[in-house]
Every structure is written in structure tokens, then in C-alpha cells.
Design a protein around this nucleic acid. Structure first.
Lengths: 184, 184
DNA sequence: TACGTTCTTGACCATGCAGTCAAGTACCGA
DNA sequence: TCGGTACTTGACTGCATGGTCAAGAACGTA
């Protein structure tokens, strides 16, 4: 690969990271091209498709964030705390990072590393749910699909041009969490 | 107005009711035109704009449904029951009638009758919330804006190509409702 | 029936996006 | 320095939408 081509590929990757970070993975590729100082054609030539470009950046962009959550929650004690913190942190990530949200709600043609990432998170959540239910602190009638749906819903909400402040968003998450606990 | 014109206006209105009922108020006007057996131009000539057409059908299409809810809830006793039934019925309406949902989430340039309809529902909800809070059965930290937001969120969710069955949707609404009640 | 007025048509413009490719440009080794 | 190959460009097609308007069709009255 020629020197200028290598430079361009790196430039596009960096531009994509930047643009996707703030705008999500569905941002028009023209914007990435403009940010990288190349033409759209170059992106397609180098990465094949939007999906190809996403694959090339998704790890650096999103994977770390999701693994952070899993690790942080894994360090906590108590089934209710673990379950609720997992949801809470995921929901906040969805608010803060449109790109992570796109992965979590699968708003894209499933690429391989993306699907893998999603499945890992999904599996972890299911385990937390099961544990919390076994301990009797979370409603027994919640299914793994419900959990999945709770994250999906939040993603859709965040996406639809959210005008609420982060503080309000955060405060309201507590309403939803309370509805999942068991009560006498 | 000529006889054929009057016939067309009626046909368009009926087609719009039909098409909007199933597809929501943002359905392409070409579809309405096709269903009415006229060209798109005729709709614009007769109703001025999409908003004009909506104004001409929104009452027959949506107003009745929303008033039904208000009346039904108003006949109930008990602040918690009233509050929860209002939310529940509204959320189900949003699932069942995309057009009503469009009104509730204000996904359109606000036309006058539409705004009026929305405000009425909003005001009624606020009253129910206040009553329920005064009775101590609903969390005191919920604001009227939160209530509004709960409906908005549900609307956005329903809109984003919902694959869940009505039964699942209904079942999951209970999670959210539970989160609004007071608990020791 | 004939003609002016009302009405309708559908091709047209504009916008915003994905994705492609022939033609032109830039690199780099000989 | 030169030439061939690698690379880039940006104009193009295609699609879906909202909305417009000159020209032709239909009505209904005289």
C-alpha cells in the first residue's frame, strides 16, 4: 500500500471515530469524508461499505465502554445492586454515546464484531437478572427478553431527538428501576 | 364548488381516514392519493398542505378516542386507579392507533385543533397526577413534565417499528406503572 | 351543443442519502 | 526524469420523500 493511501486510511479512521462518537454510527459518510479531508469515494474504496468502516472503528469506539460496565458491575456485591447498576450504567451509556446506543439497539446491518459485542452484554445481563430473581429482589415475571427490551426502548427514546437534560433523564431512570423490584 | 370536486374532496377525506388510521399521520400523501383514486396534486389543491388534510380528519380520526379515555377514567373511583388507568389506556391507544400516537407525541407541525386536543389530555393527566400524589399513592417526585414524558417515550417506542406483540407490550406496561407508585 | 370556468393531472423541482466508476492525479522505482 | 501503477476524485445513478404548476380534461350553463 502506498504511503499516501496509508495516511488516508488512518485519517479516515480517526475522522470516523470523531464523527461517529458524537453523531452515532448512522451519520452520513459525507461528513466523515469531509472531516478526513478526502472524498466519499475514497472511503468506499478503502473500507468497501459503511459496515466495513464501522467494523474498523467499533472496537476502539464502543467495545471498551461496554466492557467497562461489565467489569465495574462485576466488582459489586449484592444481586439487586448489580442488576440495577448494570441497567443504570447501560442506560447512561446510551445517553452519552450515540454510537454505543446504535450497537445496543442493533440499528445496523449486523456485522460480526458488532454482533459478538452485543451478545456478550446480553448474556451478562441475563445472568444478573437470574441472580436477582433467585434472591427474590426483582420481579419473577421479568424475562431476559424483557430486559433486552428495556435497553432497546431506552435506546429508541434517546435516539428520537432527545431534548431532556441528562439530569432529568437520569432522574427518570429511577422510575423504571423501581418498577422492576419486588414489593410486598 | 363543482360536483366532481365535491366528490373528490369526500373521497380524499375517506381515503385519508383509512390510510392514516393504519399508517399514522406521516404516511406519504401519494398513498392517500392512490387510495382515493386521484393524483397528489389534487390533495394539495384541495387541502393546501399535509397539515390541512390532517386538520380535516383529525377529529373523526383521533379526538373521539382521546375523549373516550378521559370519560372512561372520569367514571372511575380512587386516585390510584384513575391515574393508572389513564396512563394504561393512553399507552394502549398509542399502540393501537398510530394516528393518535402522532398527536400525542406531537410529531407534526402543530395545527390548531391538534394542539387543542393535546392540551386537553395533558391537563387532565396533570390533575390525576396531583390527586394521586395528594392521596400519597404515587411518588411525590413525579412532575407533570415527567408524566408527559412517559407518554412521549411510549409513543417513540411504539413508532420505532415495534415487533413486540400487543400482549407483551401490555404486560410490560405494568413494570412502568409499578415504578410510579409509592412504596414503603 | 358550445364555450368559459373549474378542476385535475403527472411530470417536474428540490432535498438528502447510499453507493459506483470513468477519468484524472500522485507516487515512486528504475 | 519518466512511465506505469496505485490512488483519488466528484459527478453520476438510484431511491424516497415533499411539494408545485403549466397544460389539458371535465363540467355545466346558456
Amino acid at each position: 500500500m502506498r504511503a499516501d493511501a496509508r495516511r488516508n486510511v488512518e485519517g479516515i479512521r480517526r475522522a470516523a471515530l470523531d464523527v461517529f462518537r458524537t453523531g452515532g454510527l448512522t451519520t452520513p459518510l459525507d461528513e466523515v469524508a469531509r472531516a478526513a479531508g478526502v472524498s466519499k469515494g475514497t472511503i468506499y474504496h478503502r473500507f468497501g461499505s459503511r459496515t466495513g468502516l464501522i467494523d474498523a472503528v467499533v472496537d476502539e469506539l464502543v467495545a471498551a465502554r461496554i466492557h467497562e460496565i461489565i467489569d465495574a458491575v462485576d466488582a459489586l456485591e449484592g444481586p439487586l445492586l448489580r442488576f440495577e447498576q448494570y441497567l443504570l450504567r447501560t442506560w447512561l451509556l446510551q445517553f452519552d454515546e450515540p454510537a454505543a446506543n446504535d450497537v445496543l439497539i442493533r440499528s445496523l446491518p449486523d456485522s460480526e464484531p458488532l454482533t459478538c459485542l452485543f451478545d456478550r452484554a446480553c448474556h451478562f445481563g441475563t445472568q444478573l437478572l437470574t441472580d436477582a430473581q433467585a434472591a427474590g429482589v426483582v420481579r419473577a415475571d421479568i424475562t431476559p427478553e424483557d430486559l433486552n427490551n428495556l435497553i432497546l426502548e431506552r435506546g429508541v427514546i434517546v435516539r428520537a431527538c432527545n431534548q431532556q437534560t441528562r439530569a432529568d433523564y437520569h432522574r427518570r431512570l429511577d422510575f423504571t428501576l423501581r418498577g422492576l423490584r419486588t414489593h410486598r
